[in-house]
Simulated assay, not measured.
Amino acid sequence: MSKPWILGLTGGIGSGKTAVAQHFIDLGVHLVDADHAARWVVEPGRPALDRIAEHFGQEVLLPDGQLDRAALRGRIFQNPEERRWLEGLLHPLIGQEILAHLGRAESPYAILVSPLLVESGQHRLAQRVLVVDAPEHLQLARTIQRDHVTEEQVHAILQVQAKREERLRHADDVIVNDRDLSWLKAEVERLHHFYLTLRGGQP
């Protein structure tokens, strides 16, 4: 059997990429979530967590030895240098974790879903990129409703994520998710059937 090719799936906050990812899973496609990989590499007992505690101090750990994400976020959010140090440590480890999980795929193609696919350079792991896009007013409304956050907080996240133009520049395929869920599912199915005809992610 030929090795599955990799589809990178991304989209801004509130674009609907989680719903798209779930529908691909329902269709039997092997999917790896970069956010999950990012959590796995900092689990207790993994070398990354020791390095983080060494660098930032024990106050970034919870009493049970898990990473205190809120405390760590607080340390790096206002400090670009510390954020770069952390990214330099974690990105290669997350990349290895992702490749190991993608390597277990048995579907004709596998999906790497990552909110920071473009920014982190993870798009280089993929042969093809699908961007889920949505008008900003919909991104705001969905995220505020889902996460119970303020408009300011959503704007702050949008600032950190790649600009829409940058994401779309890397896209081979785009779903503009501004309709209902049944339309979205139909779009995913249409793309899935197209992807099954591809070898190595290209027509």
Rank of each mutant, 00 (worst) to 15 (best):
M1C: 12
K3M: 15
K3C: 14
P4M: 11
I6G: 01
I6F: 07
G8R: 03
T10M: 13
G11Q: 10
G14Y: 01
F24I: 12
F24V: 05
V29S: 06
H30I: 02
D33H: 05
D33Q: 08
H36G: 07
W40E: 05
V42S: 01
P44S: 06
R46P: 06
P47S: 09
A48F: 07
R51C: 11
R51W: 07
A53C: 13
A53P: 07
E54H: 05
H55A: 10
H55L: 08
H55Q: 15
G57C: 11
Q58R: 12
E59C: 01
E59W: 02
V60M: 00
L61T: 05
L62P: 02
P63I: 06
G65M: 03
Q66M: 05
Q66Y: 03
D68C: 02
A70I: 01
A71R: 00
A71G: 00
R73M: 06
R75M: 08
R75C: 08
R75A: 10
I76K: 02
I76V: 15
F77L: 14
F77K: 10
E82W: 08
R84I: 14
G88C: 12
L89R: 11
H91M: 11
H91E: 09
P92Q: 12
Q96M: 13
E97W: 03
E97S: 10
H101L: 06
G103C: 04
G103H: 02
R104W: 03
A105E: 03
E106V: 07
Y109K: 05
Y109I: 03
I111K: 00
I111A: 00
L112Q: 00
S114D: 06
L116G: 09
L117M: 01
V118W: 00
E119R: 04
E119H: 02
S120H: 02
G121Q: 10
Q122H: 10
R124P: 01
A126K: 00
A126M: 01
Q127E: 08
R128S: 08
V129G: 00
V132R: 04
A134W: 05
A134H: 06
P135Q: 14
P135S: 14
E136H: 13
E136I: 15
H137D: 15
H137T: 15
L140P: 04
L140M: 14
Q145A: 15
D147K: 05
D147S: 12
H148I: 11
T150H: 11
Q153T: 15
V154W: 03
A156P: 07
L158I: 10
L158C: 05
Q159E: 15
A162L: 10
K163P: 04
K163D: 14
R164E: 11
E166I: 13
E166L: 10
L168Y: 08
H170S: 07
H170T: 02
A171W: 02
A171M: 06
D172R: 11
D172G: 12
N177D: 04
D178E: 15
D178T: 10
D180K: 07
W183G: 08
K185A: 14
K185S: 13
A186N: 15
A186M: 12
V188E: 09
L191S: 13
F194E: 14
Y195E: 07
Y195H: 14
T197N: 14
G201A: 04
G201E: 02
Q202E: 08
